[in-house]
Design a protein around this nucleic acid. Structure first.
Length: 261
DNA sequence: GTTGAGCGTT
């Protein structure tokens, strides 16, 4: 989606893409457009957004019609504080289709006109490449922690909450300061006491664990013969049970540790 | 309400 409301990229044949980083998550293309348009002819402003949440990812792409203008915008807007955040404006490194671009200009547009010898230039498929490259450059930028937000959101991303939790917990762990530590210690101690419960769990009330377990295979109780024919589910059922045993495995170990006395 | 070194959509 472009800022102009058209579906998809308008025309990127002769445009120069700028990558705007560190923009606030609240900043929208409408906010960036006038800012960048002041320094030149802006063809399009695009802010990648999360598919699920629709929130900005924190960076944007601005396409200029002329390179000189784009260059000027980079010099003028790079480091500019927008919405209380210092944005970073640089020439895009990759095109919309992960094509290599130079100075923000797409060097080789998708050349699919001819099916001739085109077995070359296997476009960069993953960001890993770029990531590695970027890391190698290791610019003197004050970098902080957290790095997998995008990855998680884009690929594994399931819940935004996960991100929150991770962030929240990460610093605490890193700091391991005061309450966090205390809490951990307390929990540990609690678990230590839990040792008593451990054996209890091992031989729990017969009605608690076994009851549902037994009930679990109701189909077994009603084997009309048809079920008998189906052996597929049988191994499946066993799977969880075996896993449970495995889960219990670590427990005794802990017990042994606490048991010494 | 929250994040953050990161390259893109019909």
């Amino acid at each position: 989606m472009s800022h102009f409301g058209r579906s998809g990229p308008p025309d990127i044949k002769d445009t120069y893409s700028l990558l705007v980083l560190n923009v606030t998550f609240r900043t929208t293309a409408d906010d960036l457009f006038p800012l960048f348009d002041k320094y030149g002819k802006v063809v399009d402003v695009f802010i990648p957004r999360d598919r699920r949440t629709g929130d900005s990812r924190g960076f944007a792409f601005v396409r200029y019609k002329y390179q000189d203008e784009a260059q000027k915008a980079v010099e003028k807007l790079d480091g500019r504080v927008v919405d209380g955040r210092e944005i970073m404006v640089r020439f895009a490194k990759y095109g919309p289709n992960a094509e290599r671009i130079d100075k923000g200009r797409i060097l080789e547009p998708v050349q699919r006109t001819k099916g001739r010898s085109r077995s070359r230039s296997p476009r960069p498929r993953h960001r890993d490449h770029r990531d590695k490259d970027s890391r190698r450059r290791s610019r003197s930028r004050s970098r902080s922690r957290s790095k997998g937000r995008y990855d998680r959101d884009q690929y594994r991303g399931r819940d935004r909450d996960n991100r929150h939790r991770s962030r929240s917990r990460s610093p605490d762990y890193h700091k391991g300061r005061g309450r966090g530590k205390y809490d951990e210690d307390r929990r540990s101690r609690s678990r230590s006491h839990g040792r008593s419960a451990s054996p209890a769990r091992r031989s729990p009330s017969p009605r608690r664990s076994p009851s549902p377990r037994r009930i679990s295979p109701p189909r077994d109780a009603s084997p009309d013969g048809r079920n008998h024919k189906d052996r597929s589910p049988t191994p499946k059922s066993i799977s969880p049970r075996g896993r449970r045993a495995g889960s219990r495995s670590p427990l005794p170990r802990s017990d042994a540790d606490d048991i010494p006395k």
